[in-house]
Amino acid sequence: MPFSTPQIWPNPLGDGYRPEAHPVSGGAPCSDYDLLREQLLEPNSISRVVLAFESGGYLSTLPNPYLATEVARAANDWSIDTWLSRDDDRLHGALVVATQQPLEAAKEIRRVGGHPKICEVILVGTGLGKPFGHPVYEPIHEAAAEMGLPIAIHAFGEVSPGANVAPQAGGMPSYYFEIQSQSHQTLASHLVSLIAHGVFERYPSLKLLLVEAGVSWVPGLLWKMDDQYKSVRVEVPWMKRWPSEVFLEHVRLTTQPLETSAGSEKLVAVLDAYGAADVLCFSSDYPHWDTDERDHVARTLPRSWHERVFHDNAAKLYGWA
C-alpha cells in the first residue's frame, strides 16, 4: 500500500535511507523480509522487533479525516497480513490510527489491538491541532489503556505538508538541520500535555513511548514541570504527583538518535539525572540514514545499563517480561 507525502525539508545528502537497505529486486527500503533479517535482525541478535510503519504514519496529517481513517484500517490489515502473520516470533508491530477522528481511532484500537503481535498504538502527527493530552483525544487514551497497549508518539509527524501545527515552536524552519535538531519539540509538547491533563491519573496502567527524538532533552523539562507543580498546581488539581515521578512510572524513550557529540561521559551524566537506565529502550531506526548500530549504543552507555536498555525496559513496557 504505497502511501507517502512529499517532503518540504528533504535530507540534503540522500533519500533518507541507508543505500544498502534498498532491495535489489526493487521496492521500498525494509519491504523485503530477507533483507530485514540479513541487515537488522540477525547481525544485532534481535529477539523481538517492533515494526512501526514509516511515512504511512503521516496519515494523521491527511486533510480528509474519512480517508485517513480508512488508510489506517488498511495499513493495519496490511501489516498483519504482510509482516505479523509470518512464521517469525521476532516480528511485532504498532497499530496506527487516524487521530483526526478519535472515536474512530478508538474503534480501530479495539478492532486490531488484541492481535497477539500488535504491541503499541502509534501516533504520528496531531490530527486535530492539539497536543495529545487534550481531552479531545480521550477515546484514544481510554482504548489504549483498555487494550493494555502503550501509546507511542513518533517525532516528525508535524513535518508533513498536511500537518495543521508547525513542526517547531517559534516559526517555520528553513532547513532539514533545524527539523533534525529540534525533533524533540513536539514530543515535549505532547509529554507535558499528557501529564498536565492528568491522563496517567485517569489511566494508571497506561504507558507512553516517545520515539525518535533523542534522549538528552528530558531532565530540564522534568525540572521545569516540577517547579510549576509547586507553584501553579491550583490550575491542574487532578495532578496528584510530581511530574517527574509520573514520567518515571509511565514514560519510556527510544534511544535513537543518541546524542553523542559531547562524549559518553557527559551524555551519561545527563541521562543519569533522570534515571534513564530504567527509561530508555534501544531502537535502531533502520532503515533510515541515521540508524544507530547496537554496538554504537552499547559503547556509549554504561555496561550496567545494557540489560535494561536492550531488553528489560522494552519487555516490561510491552508486557513481554
Binding site: 540522500g14 541507508r18 540514514w289 541515521d290 540508524t291
Partner: peptide, 10 residues
C-alpha cells in the same frame, strides 16, 4: 580537495 561522505550519517 575531494570529500568522501559516509552513506549512513553523512
Amino acid at each position: 580537495e575531494p570529500v568522501l561522505a559516509c552513506p549512513w550519517h553523512h
